[in-house]
Amino acid sequence: MRNVTLIALSLLIGIVLALTTAWSQDDMTVVDNAAFDNPQRTPSVFVHDEHNEMAEIDDCAKCHHLYEDGKLVEDESSEDQSCSECHDLEGSGDQPSLVKAFHTNCKGCHQEQKKGPIMCGECHIK
């Protein structure tokens, strides 16, 4: 009986852990700002799925782009990587810093579409 309980319990914990990880992926509500040592603002509000549904974005590469030798690689996306893997804190040459990459990726599109937040505090909500 004790063994059954133990197996059931570990199974339950395993399932809960797996589910919460999956849920937290789905329920992304802010942009991950772990790469910043001393962030001055709150992480940017961003509900991934809701945003893309509203904005009717199906193509991951729309945001998760891939550049090679300074050129955009068409039909390739980079959602399996962190933004910070390419965009470091300083930026160099044509490669924008992480802050600038986030800002131009989000705000740039919002400006083009004339929709969505463009002022600091509309994303970095206190």
């Binding site: 505090g121 509309e122 909500i125």
Partner: peptide, 13 residues
């Protein structure tokens, strides 16, 4: 006011 996001933020901004 804008920094602290008091009142209507977009208008204040």
């Amino acid at each position: 006011f804008a920094y602290h996001q008091w009142l209507s933020y977009p208008l204040i901004m």
